[in-house]
Simulated scan of single mutants.
Amino acid sequence: MSPRSLRAWSWVHTWSGLISTIFLLLLCITGLPLIFHHEIGHLLGTEVEAPAMAEDTPKTSVDRMMAAANARHPDRIVQYAIPDEDDDNIWFFTLTPTPAPTEDFRSVAVDARTADVLAQPRFDEGFMWVMLKLHVDLFAGLAGKLFLGFMGLLMLVAIVSGVVLYAPFMRRLRFGEVRRQRSTRLKWLDLHNLLGVVTLVWAFVVGGTGMINTWADLLIKYWQYSEVSTLLAPYQGQPVTPVAERASLQRAYDAAREHVPGTTLSFVAFPGTAFSSPHHFTFFLRGNTPLTARLLKPVLVDARTAEVTAAPSMPWYLTALLVSQPLHFGDYGGRPMQILWALLDIVTIVVLGSGLYLWFERRRVRRPATADLPADSEPRPALARSTEAMP
């Protein structure tokens, strides 16, 4: 590699890393408890559990469960129904004061066998909610998500440029060598390079999937306007289906399952919500294998007649989004993968912190040396500075 190219890659690596490091440290720190959100929920007592019953206890109707949830908040409207992913004996109903998307919601957990209300958990407060909001959007909504997505892009640039720089640097060192006999800065430089290479693939995967996740709102809106809108042509000019005129939710659910057999319900979006249309219950169904369980199949059911209107396939960009979400938090491989993700997260924190230390230390060391130079002296070329750590 030519000296000019080396200087260019060094500049890209330095500034892409510096600009994004503070925010990436925040994401790593907040992401650590999110890896174990279920376990932390159990410790904090915020997880809802259904009472023990015989395994063959039959389920009650979805309409009865919805009525029980609505009775707790009669001034609100049910917007989403979500079976618990780990225990299908628990359903969560989300209620808001208006049919339009809003942050003012209440959740009610209902026993799917008895229609008894189990709890009214708050998902918009507490330690884990703060960690999630900081990790997802910095409490800044879509603008915060897109900003963090840009930080993720800078992280990927820093990783690629770091790999390019690492190859010529390691020609004079054995892989994994840490020069403990040299200065503290050189020891941290070797550790920074070594840990960066060890976590290379993981950091690229988590950074890439995190960046994709920040585009979720935009991708969903694009899908609605580009594909779902064409399915709603027969409904143009019709008013939004009033709550009083909606068909039985159980009938609509049965129609959706019959249309796509061999699937499990992920969640139901009611008419007027961000994931549905003004005229449909939209059932998002998933498969029963490790891979298909992450892929959703939307089924639009007419809210008046409980008849299936359409079951469009998810486009490739939403499929990529759905696959990337559990991969980002290590949700594919159970407890072993969670532990591995946590360890790699901690190592990445060390890499980011050491990168900041090395930058500040280099500026501290260089400043007095530069100040002592005569006015007509020519500073050392960037190539010499970039290779000063080599033996």
Rank of each mutant, 00 (worst) to 15 (best):
F175I: 02
R257A: 14
T30L: 02
S354A: 07
V62H: 08
L6P: 09
I22M: 11
D376W: 10
F267H: 03
H42C: 13
P374S: 04
R246E: 07
L321Y: 14
P374Q: 02
D86P: 00
R304L: 07
V110N: 07
L44V: 11
L34W: 08
I159W: 00
A112I: 07
L189V: 15
T230E: 08
G262E: 00
K133L: 14
S5H: 12
L219V: 05
L146A: 13
R106W: 12
M65G: 00
S354R: 01
G210A: 02
S16C: 02
T241M: 13
A167H: 13
A115N: 11
D124Q: 08
R172K: 07
L232P: 12
F93S: 06
Q79T: 11
L186S: 13
T21N: 12
A269R: 01
R4I: 06
T46I: 11
A140I: 10
D87R: 00
L356I: 14
H37W: 15
I29R: 08
L352Q: 07
R367F: 00
E361H: 12
S16R: 06
T292V: 11
E307G: 02
L165C: 01
I159E: 05
S16K: 01
A140G: 08
F360K: 01
R251D: 06
V365R: 15
I212P: 05
V157T: 07
P168Q: 10
L189E: 02
T309P: 11
A342W: 08
R76H: 06
I90C: 08
S324K: 05
W91P: 13
D190P: 05
I90R: 04
V163L: 12
L344P: 05
G333V: 04
E47N: 05
R335D: 13
S20W: 03
S161M: 04
A50L: 00
L148K: 14
P99T: 01
F283M: 04
A115Y: 15
D190L: 02
R251M: 09
A81P: 06
F284M: 10
P3R: 14
T184K: 05
T264C: 00
P97K: 05
Y332H: 10
L318I: 01
A306T: 09
S20N: 04
L43S: 09
A269Q: 03
A67Y: 01
R385N: 15
W341Y: 09
L6N: 14
T241V: 09
A167Y: 14
Y235T: 04
R380T: 15
G144H: 04
R294A: 04
A306I: 07
A69H: 13
V136R: 02
T184D: 11
S20D: 06
A255M: 10
T348Q: 09
M66V: 11
A256F: 01
W9C: 06
F281E: 14
